[in-house]
């Protein structure tokens, strides 16, 4: 080999060496041990705690998902919980809630999924943020243990259905709707006429049935008899401290405390890794390309535009 080629080969070897050194350097700094700790560990892969975040109004995504199979809304939360339950490393899950609740069906789906995780012997701990009211509390009640901050707003156990009555406005504008229907209740909760007493009773029946289900599920999740919950299950909101007094939560504490509690309940070491969801869009795209489910956007704070009246477990001041 002539001299020139030897120089090029030396440069190539130098490049390979620098790449290896760079990877080692990045791996060391990734562990947070600093450059002074001459200890190289593999990335966290052992048994640990998974995180699920429920932020914003809870609803089933009406748009049918995003690009690259990304899911949104309650479907994404259920999918994330399902992924965690299939992951052999996950021994506990912390559900971080900052939500005023949402539609009845979406909330019940998340509740059922959490209950299934509990049956699979995965410890589920709820950590309330600023707000975990109504449907937000419904979801929390499915968890083994609930932590709220002192000032978290929670409670609001109840069901609500709101429908606008635009009859007066329509009359003022001279607009009349032509309605051709197959049955007398087909345009129930129509916005352009008054609701009749019979219609109100029909809706009330749905509300009462959903309320009973709410109470029964909270009682089941919290292992408290229904008569003990009923006095505070009148739609009132309360602080974390008051909720603790009424046994709606188990402890006052932050998200960090919830993580520590999850590790303790799952009998994991104090430094057990935390597997958080991927939120960076570029990372999500790459995870999708890899075929991993990290590509889902599990936050539900997208607005699902709809003018249809809905029965909701929702705190609506």
């Amino acid at each position: 080999m002539d001299k020139n080629r030897k120089i090029v080969v030396s440069i190539l070897i130098l490049l390979v060496l620098s790449s290896v050194l760079a990877i080692i350097d990045i791996s060391i700094s990734m562990q947070g041990t600093g450059r002074d700790a001459y200890r190289l560990r593999s990335p966290d892969t052992g048994p640990g705690v998974g995180i699920v975040r429920i932020y914003g109004p809870i609803a089933i995504d009406a748009s049918g998902g995003g690009p690259l199979g990304m899911a949104y809304g309650s479907d994404a939360i259920v999918q994330r919980l399902d992924d965690l339950s299939r992951d052999a490393r996950i021994k506990a899950v912390v559900v971080r809630i900052n939500s005023p609740g949402g539609t009845v069906a979406a909330t019940q789906e998340i509740y059922d999924k959490i209950m299934r995780l509990r049956k699979d012997n995965i410890v589920v701990v709820a950590s309330m943020g600023e707000l975990a009211a109504s449907g937000g509390y419904y979801v929390a009640s499915a968890c083994n243990y609930i932590l709220a901050n002192h000032g978290s707003i929670t409670g609001s156990i109840g069901v609500i259905a709101v429908s606008p009555n635009l009859k007066g406005l329509f009359e003022k504008l001279g607009i009349r709707m032509n309605v051709i229907k197959s049955g007398r209740y087909k345009d129930l909760l129509s916005a352009y006429r008054d609701i009749s007493q019979e219609e109100r009773e029909l809706i009330q029946e749905i509300i009462d049935s959903s309320y009973k289900k709410f109470l029964a599920d909270v009682a089941l999740g919290r292992n408290i008899p229904i008569p003990e919950i009923e006095p505070v299950a009148d739609g009132r909101v309360m602080s974390g401290e008051t909720a603790l007094r009424h046994r709606l939560v188990d402890e006052l504490g932050s998200f960090e405390t919830a993580l520590a509690k999850a590790r303790a309940l799952a009998k994991l070491p104090e430094d057990a890794p935390v597997y958080d969801e991927v939120t960076n869009p570029v990372e999500r795209l790459l995870m999708s390309l890899q075929g991993a489910r990290g590509g889902i956007d599990i936050r539900v704070d997208r607005q699902f535009p709809s003018n249809l009246p809905a029965v909701e477990y929702r705190y609506q001041p």
Binding site: I26, S29, M30, G32, P43, D44, V278, N280, E283, L286, M287, Q290
Partner: peptide, 9 residues
């Protein structure tokens, strides 16, 4: 500072 996502990157 990097996260384990570095390995995917």
């Amino acid at each position: 500072s990097q996260t384990p996502f570095f390995y995917i990157k």
